[in-house]
Design a protein around this nucleic acid. Structure first.
Length: 207
DNA sequence: GCGACAG
DNA sequence: ATCTTGTCGC
């Protein structure tokens, strides 16, 4: 599998992304993230109650990762383990926020798209740094004259790049993310991040 | 040729 | 992302 083949595949798959879909009432919003120690990875899917912003359920998946981190191919490293963590949740969340980009990607198919498409789940990509596209004004991320995402202020000197993953519109994605915003960042992602790191630490301390 | 480059 | 001390800001 050459890099060129992977690039072409991402481009083809990007056409399967559903940039809309009716996102009804959101009761559970999941956050998906992973922590690493060498090639050992622990992923956490944290389901958050949209009303209280409290953890309703959390599921983990640990394993070895073989693919290295390459900008643009992040999904090949982390999508599988994130999906396993998500599939293990007893209650299927209404939408999932993934730590990474959605369509704001060189080939329009970031990790949020891949996870959403594979699980047939509405997903949102939320990244702390830009990968593709250019800021158009203060709040819009665009490319080739198209809006590919939004830029949200996220604390002193910090920004959040939001783009759709699958089966959701950008306005709906923004509505969900903004409701999840706190001082510490995006609650579902912050929780998933914290729990993944805690689980990783606990497992590595086991003899 | 040079810079950019999710986690 | 992860490895890590002191340090700047509220």
């Amino acid at each position: 599998m050459t890099p060129e083949r992977l690039f072409r595949l991402q481009g083809e798959l990007s056409r399967l992304v559903e940039p809309g879909g009716a996102l009804g009432e959101v009761g559970l919003v999941a956050g998906a993230d992973a922590a690493y120690k060498g090639d050992l990875a622990v992923a956490c899917a944290a389901s958050i109650d949209m009303e209280t912003m409290e953890v309703a359920e959390a599921n983990f998946c640990s394993g070895r990762v073989s693919f290295p981190y390459i900008p643009g191919l992040f999904a090949l490293r982390e999508a599988r383990i994130l999906m396993e963590a998500l599939k293990g949740l007893r209650a299927r969340p209404d939408v999932c926020i993934v730590d990474g980009h959605g369509v704001a990607h060189p080939r329009g198919f970031g990790i949020a798209c891949q996870v959403g498409l594979a699980l047939d789940l509405p997903t949102i990509g939320a990244a702390k740094r830009r990968l593709f596209g250019a800021a158009e004004g203060d709040r819009i991320l665009g490319a080739s004259g198209e809006v590919i995402g939004a830029i949200l202020p996220a604390g002193p000197g910090r920004r959040l790049y939001v783009s759709i993953g699958h089966r959701i519109s950008l306005p709906d994605a923004l509505r969900v993310v903004e409701r999840c915003m706190r001082k510490g960042g995006v609650v579902p992602l912050a929780i998933a991040h914290k729990l993944a790191r805690a689980r990783l630490s606990a497992s590595s301390h086991t003899i």
